[in-house]
Design a protein around this nucleic acid. Structure first.
Length: 376
DNA sequence: AAACCGGGGCG
DNA sequence: CGCCCAGGTTT
């Protein structure tokens, strides 16, 4: 997500929310949140440090995964001073299994900054927070609003999706444009700081709660949604179409020929070279046909088995396969051998029955080819 | 702007 | 297997 652009003049086409709409949205969402918010342990804390830890753990990580870590981490590192002295081993032990381990080191580095420059406490100011390692626009806004009650916006994946539906934003998921518009909307919608310091934090959490529960990536549940009547996508029936999926690079069309070389019930396999994609996996001898713009990287140097004159072999079938952004059409060419097959090249060859081949590390395409051959 | 980090859950 | 997740940092 991009950074908030507070105070920047908005150009034409940027979203605006009038005060009446903002009021309706808050009046619909906040009571729902108070009623049905999940009882997450970090929501019971008012300690900025503890809230910071939860936000760091929740970066690109599901609530369910964090549940088992947050309290144990706090038991071991109850405040910034203790965290600043954490050794690598105990730090990693406390984080092990959460992924994105850079976050843990950033947390400790930030704790050292806190001890050195902020008296061991978290600042409330989002700019000061964002200057800490591992704290970006989202986390700065979250701590500032949730822990300190400041009127600061927050946009995560949930909020961007919710806004895309509320306001029919057409920019695709993950795009800079959607982030920019979502931040602008969040800044307009976040309520002013309340006396009880509950307003902005509750609002931000309510937005994320809606995105995490009812307004999920697919199959949003608009029936029970408290905001359905105010949601543009719900009114036009586009709630499952928005936000638009990420524009994906067009898949590369690949045409392959696979050699089904048989000898007394065995099939010939070759092993892909180590260190490249699918390295070490076995596959059928393969060549690529008429590559449009040079050989496809996934398959270059995969042929030549000069002993196999596949040009003369009859086709026994065709199959389709998809790898990342490649769409593959593979023709199966079969021939029967009796004696030795003279194959040049250093790559490892293996004659093996189809059933035993099932125990080999096969490429997905080879597995599919075996299944096809077994079915006849 | 895009790549990278990274593990799990789910359809 | 691809998508998605309470993102941030680096190039």
């Amino acid at each position: 997500m991009g950074a908030p652009r507070k105070g920047v003049a908005r150009g034409a086409g940027s979203p605006r929310v009038d005060a009446a709409t903002a009021s309706l949205l808050r009046g619909a969402l906040l009571p729902w949140f108070q009623e049905s918010a999940r009882d997450l342990p970090w929501r019971r804390s008012r300690d900025p440090y503890a809230i910071w830890i939860s936000e760091a753990m929740l970066q690109q990580t599901r609530v369910g995964a964090v549940l088992g870590y947050w309290q144990r981490f706090l038991d071991r590192f109850p405040d910034a001073r203790r965290l600043a002295e954490a050794g690598d081993d105990e730090l990693m032990a406390a984080w092990s299994g959460l992924g994105y381990y850079r976050r843990a080191r950033a947390l400790r580095d930030a704790a050292r900054v806190l001890v050195e420059h902020h008296g061991g406490l978290l600042p409330a100011d989002p700019a000061a927070l964002a200057a800490l390692p591992g704290v970006g626009p989202y986390t700065a806004g979250a701590i500032s609003s949730i822990a300190f009650g400041l009127s600061e916006p927050v946009v995560d994946g949930n909020v961007a999706r919710v806004f895309a539906r509320w306001f029919e934003l057409e920019a695709p998921v993950g795009s800079a444009e959607l982030a920019r518009r979502a931040w602008a909307l969040a800044a307009e919608l976040v309520p002013p700081a309340a006396v009880g310091a509950e307003g902005p934090g509750a609002w931000n959490q309510a937005l994320m709660e809606l995105g995490a529960t009812l307004c999920g990536p697919r199959a949003p549940e608009c029936g029970p949604c408290p905001v359905a009547a105010l949601c543009a996508a719900n009114r036009t029936g586009r709630q499952t179409e928005l936000p638009r999926p990420k524009a994906r690079a067009a898949p590369v069309e690949v045409e392959l020929e696979l050699a089904v070389a048989r000898r007394r019930g065995d099939l010939l396999f070759v092993r892909r070279p180590e260190g490249r994609s699918m390295g070490g996996l076995f596959e059928l001898p393969t060549r690529e046909l008429a590559p449009g713009a040079g050989p496809t990287r996934l398959f270059e140097a995969q042929w030549p088995l000069p002993g196999l004159a596949v040009d003369d072999w009859p086709s026994v079938g065709e199959l389709r396969h998809a790898i990342t952004h490649h769409r593959i059409r593979a023709r199966l060419l079969a021939a029967e051998f009796s004696g030795e097959v003279a194959v040049q090249g250093a790559r490892e060859l293996l004659w093996c029955t189809p059933s035993r081949a099932r125990e080999l590390p096969l490429s997905g395409l080879a597995k599919k080819a075996l299944t096809r051959l077994a079915r006849g």
